[in-house]
Structure formats: structure tokens, C-alpha cells
Design a protein around this nucleic acid. Structure first.
Lengths: 98, 98, 98, 98
DNA sequence: AACGTTGAAATAGTTC
DNA sequence: GAACTATTTCAACGTT
């Protein structure tokens, strides 16, 4: 029986091989994604922009909006413009704190 | 002279110690940041919101706006609402591609 | 037909949704891997060690060997002692693992 | 006075800008580290190996020892051969490194 | 206080 | 070979 150094080697090996199998699947899907990106590129789309859009869609879907109202409160408090009209704020008030 | 296995050990050691020294400085600053966060918290601010605000400010400052117009074009093309009024779009058109 | 700003929105949307679908699959598998890790942990295995073993298995022995021997060369060059003095220790403290 | 929505905006802004300033310092140091790595590389050192050596130096010998021995135990348990058969090889192929 | 969750940092891989 | 992206790893934080 495969018990070496107090370790159940049979079980350990099964777990490891299971993980490796899953990682192989994961890699296959990652490759598929690459293929789709490549296809998009070959058609003439800009993959960098696509990635950006994907990122934005993910941000939207994440229940990230729970925070939003408090974030807005803080932004207002420090004088950050909201959303669209946002521009780099003047760094005029850079006194030290500590 | 410190040349072992074809390696100039003296130079290597200097480089390594230089890096370790820089990493120590970096860590010190990271600790300072933690302190400021802690101070903010003790005053009553919500550090999670602060982190979020910092993230937004970083997004704004990164010359990320070069992409923005193209991103908007793509978003429009796929029917994503822009900015504020953005809501989760209907997934009605989920035909397969490949 | 969905052509806005010179972009074929229909095709673009299909590509994006295809990618999102693949990413969802990928995430599902990543979660499965987490589950297996969790299971291993609950049985008493050390997930950190398992990760290390997985890493070793990924490297073919040649690469692994090269890496390790070069590390030793560098360590010697800067005067770090080799692990030799750390021979395989008594396995006395391996009772309650599995 | 800058009190909006019950938030002391002045203080908040000071805190945030202090953090941003510290993060800028941190980034500068990270860049310095990159420079040193680059320098090492240009001289002929292998940065991957250097990183490995840095990692080893960070671990006190006890921790390092424990980790490695446990890895060996797991490898034995699943029937992976130990590195022993990979003894320190001839240093014949270390000419043109530095 | 340990656990899981989360976000940041390091590292590895890929592309240009 | 340099820059960027993605993955993985590590540490902090809140939670139970």
C-alpha cells in the first residue's frame, strides 16, 4: 500500500492528476480564446480595444455598484468631477500630512 | 579574486545586495502607506472606499484616454450604453460563433 | 444591418460574447481546481506543497536540473552555503498529516 | 470649509494625496530595481536565477528546509524520483556566462 | 483566531 | 529583445 512518510500517496496522486487534468482543460479554453482574438484581428478588429470593452463589461456586471454611492460621496468631498467631465484635478493643494 | 564557476561573484553580490537594499526601501514605503490608511480609518474614513477612489484616480491619470474614443465606437457598435445610464444589457442575442 | 462608425457591430458582438462565454467556462474550471485543492486541504494535505509539486511536474527534468544547478553556481559565487548540509532530515515529524 | 455629505473633504484629500505621493515613490524604487536587473542582464547574468537566489535569501534556512523536505516527502509518496540522481553536474558548460 | 475573500504584487508568457 | 498582458502568488482584511 502506498503510504510513505505518513502520506497516503495514492490519494495524493489522484488529487494531483485531477488538478493537472483540469489545468489541461483550462489551458485548452485559454487557447480557444486566443484563437477567437486572432480571428477578430484577422477580420480587422483591434484586439486591444476588444480587451478594453471586455473589461468594461466585466466591471459593469460585477456587483460593484454597491460601493458606487459612497465612492461618489468621497469623490465629491475631494472635488473630483463625476464621470464624463472628469479631468485631471489641479494638484494645487499638496500640503504634507505626516 | 571571487570568480567561481566562471561567475564574477563580487559583482553578482553587489547587484544582489543593491536589489535587496532597494526592496527594503520599497517595503518601508509600503508600510508608510499602511500607516496612512490606518490613520484614515481611525479618523472614521472607510478605507475600502478610499482604495476605490485611488483606483479611479489612477485610471483617470493613466493616458488611458487615448483608447477611449475607439472604445466608445466599439461600445456603440455592439449596443452598449455609454457611461452613466449603463445597465446590464440583455443577453438576447447569444448566437454561437464557432 | 448593424454597421456603426464603420464597425460591423453584429460580428463584433458575436466575437465578444463568444469570448465571454469561453471565459465563463475557464472560470468554472478554475473553481473546480479550487474545490479539489479545498478537498485536499480538508483531508490534511498542504496545498502549498501540492502547488510546488505541480510546478516540478510541469518542468521537464532537464530544465529543472539546469535551473537548480545554476542557482547553486550563483550561490557559491556569492558565498552562500549550499543546501548540502541540509540533508534529508528525520521524518519523525510527519505523523499527523494525512 | 470643505464638508460635503458629512465628509471632511480637506482631510480626505490630504490623505489621498499623501498616499498617491507614497505610491509614486514606491513605483520609482520598483523602477530602480528593474534597472539593476537590466544592468545585471546586460553584464551577462541570468535574471531568473538572480530572482531565485533572492527568494532563497529571503527565507530563513529553517523555513526553506521545511518546505523542501516536505516537497520531497510528497514526491516520494506519489512515486516521483528525487533530485538525488541529479548530482551537481560537471561545470564544463559554464564558460560564457559572465 | 482561523477561515475565506479580496486586492495587490511578482512572475511568466506572448506579441510586436 | 522590449513592452504588454495574463496568470499566479502573496498578503491584508473582514468575517464567523
Amino acid at each position: 500500500m502506498s503510504n510513505i512518510g505518513g502520506i497516503d500517496g495514492t490519494t495524493l496522486k489522484q488529487l494531483i492528476e485531477k488538478i493537472e487534468s483540469l489545468e489541461a482543460e483550462k489551458k485548452a479554453i485559454a487557447d480557444d480564446i486566443k484563437d477567437v482574438m486572432q480571428e477578430a484581428k484577422s477580420i480587422g478588429f483591434d484586439v486591444k480595444i476588444i480587451r478594453e470593452v471586455l473589461k468594461l463589461r466585466k466591471l459593469d456586471s460585477n456587483d460593484r455598484f454597491e460601493l458606487e454611492s459612497m465612492v461618489d460621496v468621497y469623490k465629491k468631498a475631494i472635488g473630483m468631477e463625476l464621470d464624463d467631465d472628469a479631468e485631471i484635478p489641479s494638484e494645487e493643494e499638496l500640503e504634507n500630512i505626516a
